[in-house]
Every structure is written in C-alpha cells, then in structure tokens.
Write a protein that binds this DNA or RNA. Structure first.
Lengths: 233, 233
DNA sequence: GATCGTCAAGAGCAGTGCTCTCTTTTCTTC
DNA sequence: GAAGAAAAGAGAGCACTGCTCTTGACGATC
C-alpha cells in the first residue's frame, strides 16, 4: 500500500486534510470572517506558525475551502440530476434547482462564500474554475439534451432582437450546452441566474417577514422558470 | 437658525456625519472587511476610543453605512423610474434594471454589503428595513400600475398551479403592488430576483471569461425578463 | 461659582495574520 | 549505520484589530 509515498508525505497529506476539515467546521459555524488560522491551530494542538507549512496564507486556506465547497455543491447537483430519467428534462431541471437550494440551506456560510460577496482582498485563482463550473456543466447538459430532443420550446411571444455582440458570448456559453441556439442560450442564462438570485434572496434575508412558505414558493417559482427556459415542469 | 439645537448637539451631528463619510470612503476602497474604526479615527485625527462616543460598535457603524447604501440605490431607482413616462411600464422596468446595475457597478462594495453575504455576526436590525425596500416599492408600483392599465399580459402557456400556501405570502407582497393577482405576484418575484441574480453574477465574478459584452447581455436579458413579467419591452 | 454630564485621550486586553529564528525530526546519501 | 540535507514544529515578536476602562478637560445648568 501507499507505494512511493514516504511516511512524511503521508502524514503531510493527512495533516493537510485535517486542517481543511477543522477549518471547514469553523467556517460552517462562524462564517468566513470568523475563520482563524490560530483557532484552527489551537484546536489541532499545534503552534499557529506551523500551519504556514501547509498553507502559505489564510487566503490560500480559504481558497481550498472554496474549491471543496464548489465540489460539494457540484456533486449534489450531479447526483440529483442522475436520479431523474434523462429524457425528463423538466424533472432534471427541478431536481437541480432543489439540489442547489437544499445544499445552500444546509451550508449557508459555504454558499455565501461561493455566491455571496468575494470576502478577502480578492481571489478566484485559476484552480477554482474547474470546480466552480461543475454544477453549470450539469445544467448545460440538461439544456443541451432538451434541445436535441426537441423539447426546448420557446414561449409563444416573439423574443426581442439579440444584440450583435451576444453571438460571441453565446459561443463561449455553448461550450457547456452544445448545439443550443443563441436565443435558448440567453434563456438558459436567465433561468440559471434566476435560480441563484432566488436562493440568495432567501438565504441573505431579503424574504424575511415576506415569504414564509419558502419551499413552496421556491418550487413554484422554479417551475415558472422552466417555462421561460422552454421546458415543461 | 438651528433652533433648539445646542452647540454641542450641532457639533455632535456634524462629527457623526463626518465619521460615516470617512467610513464610506474606506468601505468603497477596501470593502466591508477592510473597514477599520481605528483607521477612520486616524484619518480624522482623533483617538480611536473617541469614535465609540458616536457608534457603540463597529457593527453599528456598518449598519449606518448599510442604511445609507440602501437609500442610495433606492434613490437611484426612484429617479430612473421618474424619468420615464408613467404609462410606459416596460420602459420603467428597464430603467429600474439599469439603475440597479449602474449603481452596483459604481459602488461594488456597497452592493456586496447589501445583497451579498451578511458580513459580520449577523445583523439587519429593524432600522434598515424601511430603507431596504425603497427600490422594491418603486418596482411594486410599476407592476401595480401595469396591471391596473391592463398591460400585464401573462405569457401564452398556462401556468403551473399555485401552491395553496402561496396565497398568504402573496398577500404580503401585494402590499407593495396593490391589486395584482397571485399569479402576477409570483412572476414579479421571479423577475425581481432574476435582476439581482444577474447583477450579482456579473459583479461577483461568475461571468468572468464568459460574458464579455456585459451591458448588451444584461439589457437583452432584462428585456426577456420583462416578457416573463408580462410587459412589452 | 459650584456641579454634573459630555467628550477626548491614553493605556491596556485579547485577539488576529504573518515572519523570523531556533530546535527537532525525518529522509537521503555515502 | 553514520553524516549531511531537507522538512517540520515551536516560540517570540511585529503590526494590526475591536473594545473597555480610567483620567482629565470642557461646557451647560442650577
């Protein structure tokens, strides 16, 4: 076992994992601004300076947590999508919506870290993007599948004309949803941002004292978004 | 002048205003996490402890800034709405959208403070809500006006059935958009959260390297949202 | 004119991220 | 197996933070 891994490398990997685990627990309780390297070190019974052997700065530790969280929500979305018959595109969309919301409600501070204000100086190194798009990849596949199956019906009204510059932007988005025409791309973007806009409003307090049956309202709103997208739900 | 205001009260009000001004400048540059009471005191040439005569804690100062920012975006939305003929409901909606986005782009850290993650321990005292809904009040008036004018046409497809519990929630929302039926309320909510979802995605980096002509894409997306709402734009 | 409330200032506490130095442990090479 | 190199831990210390407490000065009030 553990071929070509020295004892030192093994304990280093183990300690790195333990640090992120402790940090993740602190993040879940206190939020990003309450995450403290010294507190992590204290809980692990080691000197605070020793942490810097594993993470060169607090921001690097935060970045690790961000990547972890992106993967967590991405995995939740992947599982939710896989549990629905592939040809039921509307059901897959709803499953993704609920997966995002459920994960956000279960991990509010982590959701805030991903989709709220960028906390520290400023970040988003290149390492994060691969993990960051995992959920979007799933979503793009749903839209693409629906279009290929001819299930992506635009709403009855004639759409406003597309700005000429959007064609290039749509081409970049199309890498995630192959074959989908420009007009469906913009509808896809509107629905996707609408999902996160709703979840953020709910999580960040904008619905307080207004919307009380959050689950029901969310479910209905996302069914409406499905119509915008062109899916029956 | 300044009847019934002693000299002490006047200088106190003046100093309070100056503190918030300095803090607001620091917030604009550094962001909420970089706002420091000591730095504010330093810039004003006074002892850090003296600040506590005016704001009992850092969170209280932040709350004052939050209220200020809510009023700023509310005022921008009000002005944008007032500049469009009242019967042009679609134009008013687009004006509000662009007002929100323009203000957010001009004051990214303040936008993050309002619609991003709740930064410190947790806040939102009752004082903020009056200021927080100023923009929503304008929006509600547009939807209400459009409905009264018979301009709020639902899309062709038959909507999914409303959950029974939504009727009570809709009643609360209806205080901001009198007379609007339940189904239009939910469409109004979807469009409103979609606006902020899009702006947040743009501001918080989710569109980086994907959407480049942000202004054009935003304008088109909000025109699409107008159709969802039932407005021609 | 004495009194009382307000305000500014300074010192100090506990906490933070981070760096530097020194010692200990572990791995590699002879 | 011993010697040298590399890595890891520990501790002190710097500059910073929010916040509290005490002390002294000023201005309004009786």
């Amino acid at each position: 076992m553990s071929s070509s891994l020295t004892a030192r490398e093994r304990v280093r990997a183990e300690l790195t994992r333990e640090i992120t685990d402790v940090a993740r627990r602190q993040l879940a309780v206190e939020g990003a601004s309450g995450l403290s390297l010294r507190a992590v070190a204290r809980e692990m019974g080691m000197a605070s300076s020793a942490i810097y052997r594993y993470f060169p700065s607090r921001d690097d530790l935060l970045t690790a947590l961000i990547i972890h969280s992106y993967n967590a929500v991405g995995e939740a979305v992947e599982k939710a999508d896989a549990a629905v018959p592939p040809e039921d595109h509307g059901g897959r969309w709803m499953a993704v919506c609920h997966a995002v919301r459920d994960w956000a409600l279960a991990h509010p501070h982590e959701y805030a870290l991903l989709y709220g204000s960028p906390v520290p100086g400023y970040r988003a190194p290149q390492d994060t993007v691969a993990a960051a798009v995992r959920d979007t990849v799933v979503y793009g596949r749903i839209v693409s599948d629906a279009h290929r199956a001819g299930a992506l019906n635009p709403p009855g009204t004639t759409p406003p004309p597309l700005p000429p510059s959007f064609h290039e932007d749509a081409a970049r988005v199309r890498e995630l949803m192959p074959g989908v025409p420009d007009d469906a791309v913009v509808r896809g973007l509107v629905a996707w941002t609408g999902l996160f806009g709703w979840v953020s409003f709910e999580l960040f307090g904008q619905f307080d004292n207004v919307i009380l049956d959050r689950a029901a309202a969310f479910d209905h709103a996302m069914r409406r978004q499905a119509r915008t997208l062109g899916l029956p739900a």
